[in-house]
Design a binder for these strands. Structure first.
Lengths: 107, 107
DNA sequence: ACTATACATAGATTATCGTCTATGTAATGG
DNA sequence: CCATTACATAGACGATAATCTATGTATAGT
């Protein structure tokens, strides 16, 4: 399994402000100025966070005149849950393999 | 919703090496020396990563003689999936609220 | 007792990250 | 055309994180 994209998603989510942004977007589209109202940091900081979220494939942006409308990528919602299930399940994709020592003990 | 613990989990998972450790532990218990065999970094670095995972409530450790046996916390598996579902669902817990501008447009 | 093994801790270093100010750009309106 | 609004970019800075070497501690075997 290739966790490269999953790690990028996790990194993007592992910030309380960005997590709040995802929460805000989870029920619909918002423009940057609307999102900014929920935070204390500056506008360039929001711009930075939105870029991180876009690069991780979490959010996509549509320009409408002066406004940038942000939404969650549906593919992200699917893939993140899928990758999480795959990671935490002890299935055939699991990386784990018993050590030589433990194999000896088992024999 | 309180995302404090969820953010801590995400931060701990947002590292490719720690994600691989979680994957290794997802189908059973392993001791540190077994985990270390799968990586190129040093033993103190592994010790550091295991501490991060423990502090996030992802992993617990049991000492057995010389060995430290690590396992995934079952509570983590449950809570992480639950928090993820809650974050990404557009339900009543959602933070989002329409801006004044959008409310005006809607009126 | 001595040695080896398994792991933790301390401290330093380098890289990455979150945030800021300053400034640029593009669209809108008078 | 000029001002305003919405947003992006550049560069700097302080904090945090990932890694290392050196060393400490505890357990097991001889």
């Amino acid at each position: 399994m290739d966790y490269q994209n999953y790690v990028q998603m996790l990194k993007a989510m592992a910030d309380p402000n960005r997590l709040k942004i995802i929460d805000l977007l989870s029920c619909g589209s918002l423009c940057a100025c609307d999102i900014l109202q929920h935070f204390d940091f500056s506008q360039p900081t929001l711009s930075h966070h939105m870029k991180v979220l876009q690069n991780a494939g979490i959010v996509f942006a549509v320009k409408d005149g002066k406004w940038q409308h942000y939404s969650l990528q549906k593919r992200f919602v699917q893939e993140f849950k899928q990758n999480t299930d795959q990671l935490l399940a002890a299935d055939e994709h699991c990386l784990c393999q018993r050590s030589d020592r433990e194999k000896d003990v088992a024999n």
